[in-house]
C-alpha cells in the first residue's frame, strides 16, 4: 500500500518544517503533498485550516524550490495541493511557477466544486506545463463527472473519504470503495481525510484502496516540536503501509 504525507508549506516555520520533512526522507513512502497556503482553505478541517495562516507568513518560492528538490532527490514524487483561488487570475503563470519549483503534479481540492465550470481549461493548463492533474473525488462527486475527469487525466486518484480533513463521521467504507473502484478501474486510488490510526489503515487496505494520504495526524507533533511523537507516527504509517 502506498503512502502520501501532507504538509502545509512551510508550517510552523521554514526551519521547523525542513527539520520534520527531513526526518521522513529516509523512510519508505511514495508521495509528498505540499499544501500551498491560502487565506480560505474551505474544505479543510480546523487542524489544517489553522496551519495556513502561519504558513502564509513564512512562505517563499525559494524555500519551496529547495524543498521540492530535496523531495525529488529521494525518488519520491512531489505534488502541490492548491486551492484554485490562488491562481484564478493567472493559471498559466501559476502552473509555470509550480513546474519551475519541480512539482510532479497538482491536486486541486476545489476544482470540481467552486471552479467546476473552468475544469476543462484548468486541466488543460496544468497538462500544458507538463504537470499531472490528480483527480480529486469524494463520495458526492457524481458518476458522470468522475468519468469525464478520468478521461482528461492519466494519474493516480485522490479520494477524500470524509467531508473534510481531520474529522471522522461514520462511513460505509466498503460501499464507497466499491463505487469508486468500479468507476476508476485499474487506476491507483489513494484515500485521504480522517485517517489517524492503524485500525483505519488496515480497514482501508482490506477493502482494496491502493494507498493512504495523511496530514492532520502529523500537525500536532510538528507544532509542539515533538520529534519523538512525530517519528512514532510516521513509523507507524510506514509500517502499516509498507511493513
Amino acid at each position: 500500500m502506498k503512502l502520501a504525507l501532507y504538509f502545509t508549506f512551510p508550517y510552523p516555520s521554514g526551519e521547523t518544517f525542513n527539520k520534520f520533512l527531513n526526518r521522513t526522507m529516509p523512510l519508505n513512502y511514495e508521495y509528498v503533498e505540499l499544501g500551498i497556503p491560502t487565506e480560505h482553505p474551505y474544505y479543510d478541517g480546523p487542524v489544517i485550516r489553522k496551519t495556513h495562516g502561519r504558513a502564509r507568513e513564512e512562505f517563499s518560492m525559494e524555500l519551496l524550490k529547495d524543498t521540492v528538490q530535496t523531495i525529488r532527490e529521494t525518488g519520491k514524487k512531489a505534488y502541490a495541493l492548491v486551492y484554485c483561488n490562488l491562481f484564478e487570475n493567472d493559471a498559466d503563470g501559476f502552473m509555470s511557477s509550480m513546474k519551475d519549483a519541480g512539482f510532479n503534479g497538482m491536486i486541486l481540492p476545489d476544482l470540481l466544486t467552486d471552479y467546476y465550470s473552468m475544469r476543462r481549461s484548468i486541466a488543460s493548463t496544468v497538462s500544458s506545463h507538463g504537470l499531472e492533474l490528480i483527480p480529486f473525488f469524494n463520495s458526492t462527486t457524481p458518476d458522470s463527472v468522475i468519468k469525464e475527469i478520468l478521461s482528461l487525466t492519466h494519474s493516480w486518484i485522490y479520494f477524500g473519504l470524509q467531508p473534510s480533513t481531520g474529522i471522522r463521521v461514520p462511513l460505509d467504507i466498503q460501499s464507497m470503495y466499491g463505487r469508486i473502484r468500479n468507476l476508476c478501474g485499474e487506476r491507483e486510488i489513494i484515500v485521504g481525510f480522517g485517517i489517524n490510526n492503524a485500525g483505519i489503515i488496515r480497514d482501508l487496505r482490506k477493502v482494496g484502496f491502493d494507498g493512504i494520504a495523511v496530514g492532520s495526524a502529523l500537525i500536532d507533533s510538528m507544532e509542539k516540536n515533538d520529534t519523538v511523537a512525530f517519528d512514532s507516527e510516521i513509523k507507524m504509517l510506514e509500517s502499516e503501509t509498507h511493513g
Binding site: 474544505y43 470540481l112 466544486t113 469524494n138 462527486t141 457524481p142 463527472v145
Partner: peptide, 8 residues
Amino acid sequence: EPLSPPRD
C-alpha cells in the same frame, strides 16, 4: 455537477 460540500 458535483454538489459543493458543507463548509465550516
